[in-house]
Amino acid sequence: MTDSLEKEKLFDEKGLRLDGRRVDELRPLKLEIGTLSRADGSAYIEHGRNKILAAVYGPRELHPRHRAIADRALLRVTYRMGTFSVGERKRPAPSRREHEISMVIRQALEPMLFLEMYPRAAIDVFIQVVEADGGSRCASTTVASIALANAGIPMRSIVTGVAVGKADGQLVVDLSDLEDKIGDADVPVAMAYGRNEYTLLQMDGKLSKEELAKALEMVEGAIETIYEKQQQVLREGFIQIREEISESEEPSSDEGDVPDTEIDETDMESADGD
């Protein structure tokens, strides 16, 4: 959002964005659950060039104990960027930006959790940005939410994040790194989509109130698309577990001559899915 770069064009002659997208089109999105073997729940997202991992632990005993809350669990969210995730090496110590983003992501997830079910316990969410592109706090919220679901933590709804903003004079959904940096406004949003509730909302840049109204309308369409992908990846996770269970319970008698090696493979697959 600097003067010197403001004149740079962010649309081609066909009215498409520099990466070929329409104004309301999302970057390529890939979601995965159960990515990390040691965590109680985990997930991975690739959104544009963002590559982000999330691990969830808990509900578990809270340390240090004096932070325990008598009538509910403490949700802790830690957002960290890898030193190599950005253009110039990021210093390893957590920055003020990372502290603030950890906080807004926590507040984006918290309203959807039943923390009162686990008094004095902790639920910990660790988010590691491996590669950062524009909109990493939104992608982090999206991935953290399905990691919580993967950990089996009950929720009112999953939470979905994406940014909307204004670049080169036009409202655009899911800003790229460049559109974020030299655009006119950036509005990161997260919603509990089915409930029509915003749980994360920030903005910087310049928008009129009419533009903001239009931008929020646009972003809800994008949220719906991502929300459906989140649902789908979680559903597929459960189907896979069911298949693995039924496979391991199936009597192998009808094919008596199954070689040993194949049985070993099946066992390994079910261990992976845990």
Binding site: Y198, L201, Q202, L207, L212, L216, E220
Partner: peptide, 26 residues
């Protein structure tokens, strides 16, 4: 901002807002 546009927003706290609530506040 001085020209009546919005130049920053920040939601915080562990609650939620609807689109209508956001636009009403603006």
């Amino acid at each position: 901002d001085g020209d009546d546009t919005i130049c920053s927003m920040q939601k915080s706290g562990s609650g939620t807002l609807t689109r209508q609530e956001i636009l009403d506040c603006v």
